[in-house]
Structure formats: C-alpha cells, structure tokens
C-alpha cells in the first residue's frame, strides 16, 4: 500500500515526469485547478474533513517532508513529518475528528492562503499543479505561520477533480517555533 497507484513516480518513489507523460493530453485548465485549490483550502479552514478526504482518489498519498527538503525527496529513504498512504491518510482524518486528538481539541483556528497556481505538466495519472501557500494556525493566544509550496497531481474524474497526490514543502529552515503539523496544511 506504500506509494501505490502513483504512476508518476519512479521505482524509488521519486516524482518524475517523462517527455511522453508530458505530451499526454489530459491537462486540466489552470483556472479549474485554482478553483479546486481554493475550495480545498476552504474545506480545511472550516474543518469539513469528510468533504476534504473525499477530494482524494483511492490510493492517493499525502506527504509533508521535513522543512527545507528538496522537492523530490523520497520518504523511503529520508525522514519526513508526514508520509501517508491512503490508509493512513483516512486514519489521519478519523483521528482529527476525535476529541481525543488533543492537539486539535479544542480545534485551532486557521486560514489558508493559496497563490501562484501553475500547471507544471501532465502526468499519466493527471495534471501536475504547483502553488504557493501561507497557513495560519491560532490556538491558546499563539499564532503560528506555515509557508511553502504544494505540489499536486490532480485527476479529472466524472466531471470533478480528484487529488492523486499532495506534497507540502515547507520553505522554512526548521519547524521553529511552530513545533508541530497537527493540522492539514
């Protein structure tokens, strides 16, 4: 179940995009991707987590490498903060919905800003999309700011868009003073 279903990775799990993949013709329009990312951000801001997990295709992955890591870092050989296969991603959502997920109970307040949305290319499994983000998390009178860039593979599916993979790269030198990634970035 590790990295399953991702045809845009090589055997070592690294993201690659061959010329052939780039030329396939299933590109999603940039504006559609942008709308989709705004909607995803709103779902997370509003803690609509069941709606959020439904945005993912079966077998999708969600990853947050250590702050400052290279875009193509591999979770099979380097320590991340989060490297969820689909099973664990679903479990992450289930966990966050519980009162016993203490870090987020009571829930933090948050706001996600998405910008610089770009189509990076076409993968066999979908369209490669990049964007910049700033996420604010506030709890107990302390506000933390996370910033970086997301890398998605998005897939058209029955008139909707599904996430095949989401990788959140923190453009910070360390996770100080934030200390934790207990929300979905």
């Amino acid at each position: 179940m590790f990295l399953a279903g991702l045809e845009s990775t090589d055997v070592a799990g690294r993201y690659v995009m061959s010329a052939a993949l780039r030329q396939s013709s299933i590109a999603l329009p940039r504006a559609d991707c942008e709308d989709f990312l705004y909607e995803e951000a709103a779902m997370l801001d509003e803690w609509r987590l069941d709606g959020w997990i439904a945005l993912f295709a079966k077998g999708a992955i969600y990853e947050v490498p250590a702050a400052g890591a290279a875009d193509d870092v591999n979770p099979a050989s380097a320590l991340f903060y989060i490297a969820d296969d689909y099973h664990r991603l679903c479990q992450r959502v289930e966990r966050l919905k519980k009162d016993a997920a203490h870090s987020e109970f009571p829930r933090s307040d948050g706001l996600r800003l998405i910008s610089n949305v770009r189509i990076l290319g076409n993968a066999k499994t979908g369209t490669s999309v990049g964007c910049a983000f700033v996420t604010y998390r506030s709890k107990n009178d302390v506000t933390d700011i996370y910033f970086g860039h997301h890398r998605y593979v998005l897939q058209p599916s029955d008139g909707a868009i599904r996430i095949v993979s989401k990788r959140t790269l923190l453009d910070m030198s360390s996770l100080r003073p934030q200390g934790r990634v207990s929300i979905i970035l």
């Binding site: 702050a67 890591a69 050989s77 991340f80 302390v142 996770l175 003073p177």
Partner: peptide
C-alpha cells in the same frame, strides 16, 4: 542516522 532531521521546538 537516516537523512532528514526533525528540527522543531516546544513552548
């Protein structure tokens, strides 16, 4: 030591 350090902080 495997590549990748978790450098964080706690208040």
């Amino acid at each position: 030591i495997v590549g990748g350090t978790q450098e964080y902080s706690i208040r």
